[in-house]
């Protein structure tokens, strides 16, 4: 009786991408942002507003979620792993310039999209959404505490809040769409681990 050794399939080699700090900051921020977007739709889009009514309650939930939005990130700062990732997101190297140029030319070849732990698109997105969130927070506070700010400010703040909300909605849809298109990236944020093969393909300059 000869037993043929089964074709040896090595366990898929995995690398650590995110620790608990990064994963929980992302998770809670995403949940709060989701609440903001859904309640905003209830307040803003007439068909949804008719469906829900209860305007005062919806406003209160929207305000609380908005106020809480920066909290997960601030709490996450106690983790040096999270701070290190913020550093990766902040710093741009020569390869990021190459990546951005390729993105502008719609050049999708891997070789023209060099990336370290985060690619240049992810870095720009992270910085922009952080800034936009703070602008939403500031204008939201002006609209909320109407008697603290001078004449005119509230109308102006409402204007910026409305248009930036629309912009964030579109950008966020792009962010979620790209995540849907890349299961391994989502896996990274869910479990903290990604396959080595994926890491070398998508983030060739990253040394995990």
């Amino acid at each position: 009786m000869t037993l043929r050794t089964e074709a040896h399939t090595p366990p898929v080699s995995e690398v650590r991408r995110f620790g608990p700090a990064q994963r929980w900051v992302h998770r809670t921020t995403a949940a709060l942002m989701g609440v903001c977007v859904v309640t905003a739709a209830f307040l803003y889009i007439p068909q949804f507003a008719e469906l829900v009514g209860r305007r005062e309650l919806v406003v209160r939930v929207h305000e609380c979620a908005g106020l809480a939005l920066p909290v997960p990130l601030l709490v996450g700062l106690v983790s040096r792993w999270f701070r290190a990732d913020l550093g990766h997101l902040n710093r741009f190297g020569p390869h990021d310039r190459i990546w951005l140029r390729a993105a502008l030319r719609r050049d999708k070849r891997r070789s023209s999209r060099p990336a370290a732990k985060f690619n240049a698109g992810q870095k720009i997105y992270a910085a922009w959404i952080a800034g936009a969130t703070l602008v939403m927070l500031g204008t939201g506070l002006i609209m909320w505490f109407t008697h603290l700010t001078p004449l005119m400010w509230r109308t102006s703040a409402t204007f910026v809040h409305d248009w930036l909300a629309l912009t964030i909605g579109i950008v966020l849809a792009g962010h979620i769409g790209m995540a849907i298109g890349d299961p391994e990236a989502r896996n990274g944020l869910r479990t903290g681990r990604v396959s080595r093969e994926w890491a070398e393909r998508e983030h060739p300059l990253w040394r995990p």
Binding site: R80, W81, A84, G87, R91, I124, A127, P208
Partner: peptide, 21 residues
């Protein structure tokens, strides 16, 4: 230790954030 950003690079992220604000 956490991997330091491999090359320090320019703080473009901070500029984008401040620019947005």
């Amino acid at each position: 230790k956490p991997q330091p950003p491999s090359d320090r690079g320019t703080p473009v992220g901070r500029r984008v954030l401040l620019g947005t604000i």
